[in-house]
Amino acid sequence: MESTFDFSKRFTPKRKLEFAQLLKSISRQIGFKVSSRGWCYIMEQKGLINKDQFDRVADAINDLRRQGMIPVDFVAEESARQFQGVEEEYDGDVDDVIGWMTRDVLNGGKYFTPDWWEDEEYYIQCVVEKIDLVTLFAPVCEKFKIPIANSKGWSSILQRAEYARRFKEAEDKGLKCVLLYCGDHDPDGKRISETLRNNLEQVSEVTWGDGTDGYDPADLIIDRFGLNYDFIKANGFTWIDNLITGSGGNLASPRHPNHSLPYVQEYLRTIGERKCEANAIVTLPRVARAMVRQAIEKYLGEGAEQRFEEKMQARKDEYNERLKEIGLYDIITDFQAGRNNEDEDDE
């Protein structure tokens, strides 16, 4: 189906059904959600569409969601658009509640988060330019306890101040701070280190309600690990043949106020009037996750994941020993055994 589906034809009800089946099939292959725009890159990488068809395909995907032909939550949405505070009624009985609560007590060691960065040399956070990359990189970042977010939101003073505060707390403990960044390959993306540092300098003089001062990013290591030219070339990603910015201006045009600036002229000389969006990386999830892992292990070393697992296990062991000391461990395990016997009798 992937090699024969023609996106240039009209979307009849039958073709919509075929398209929905195609999306579901590819979704099972990639194993995580992407935005409507991300789906366009996946389709392009598979040779199903070209760049001119992106808007048509994105609109078709959203039509299928509205019409119930694919789940409405089939694509990734930005968290800022999601409702908070939604509660659902629990319809289980009292014994069910006690059952899961006591199981939670037995597993309570997971809530006693250790100081992951104790005895480490670096403290790392990660920002990416597209929401799809948060979904893509999050499983790797979670293994290394690294906060990750979409950099689109850094216009917010509070958001910038919050991740700056974590850097300040880390530096106060003697850690070297690193901000990993992955974004578009374009003139502004190439000088992102300067931009991100300026964004943090703008909130360096803030104060918090608890008296904490702002963060001076002078010593912050900013590492732009992608997308880079060699990576784009090696993986055959498609270039977009323009340098139109998010505000609609064209950096390649002499009429753009930044056109004559050295960073734009250097890009035009070396790369030309083209760019590559970070969404393209979702088409190769294994390669992408290996890339972010390599960027992390550049600072933490290859044994970091094992170190973090050992730190967590030490807290769990400490918790379980305390449960046994106060007698709760045996009480709970006896209760759980009784519940299991009741379930077997019911069968």
Rank of each mutant, 00 (worst) to 15 (best):
E88H: 14
Q29E: 15
F83C: 02
A60W: 11
G99W: 11
V105A: 14
T245Y: 07
N228C: 09
S204V: 03
Y267G: 13
F11S: 02
Y299H: 05
G85A: 12
Y111N: 06
K311W: 04
A20D: 09
A60K: 05
R56H: 12
Q82S: 00
W117V: 04
Q313A: 13
I30C: 03
V72Q: 05
I281H: 02
D334A: 11
Q336Y: 10
D63F: 01
E171A: 14
K33C: 05
C40V: 08
E121S: 08
M291H: 09
R224Q: 07
Q82W: 00
K110G: 03
D172G: 06
G153V: 03
I240C: 08
F32P: 02
M1Q: 07
G108M: 13
D6I: 07
G248L: 14
P13C: 07
V292S: 12
N150I: 00
T207W: 09
T113C: 08
E2W: 04
F112Y: 14
R160S: 10
S3K: 08
A149N: 01
K176C: 08
Q336N: 14
F83Y: 06
D317G: 04
A138F: 01
G109E: 04
F19T: 01
E201S: 10
P257N: 15
D186Y: 04
Q159F: 13
R81M: 00
V86K: 15
A80I: 01
K311R: 13
T135G: 00
N279W: 01
D330V: 13
E162S: 04
S3H: 04
G327A: 09
S36N: 11
D343Y: 13
P13G: 05
R293A: 12
A252Y: 10
R10C: 04
Q125V: 07
R293L: 08
Q294G: 09
M69W: 08
L268P: 07
I331R: 15
E201F: 09
G68T: 06
W100N: 08
I192Y: 06
I124Y: 04
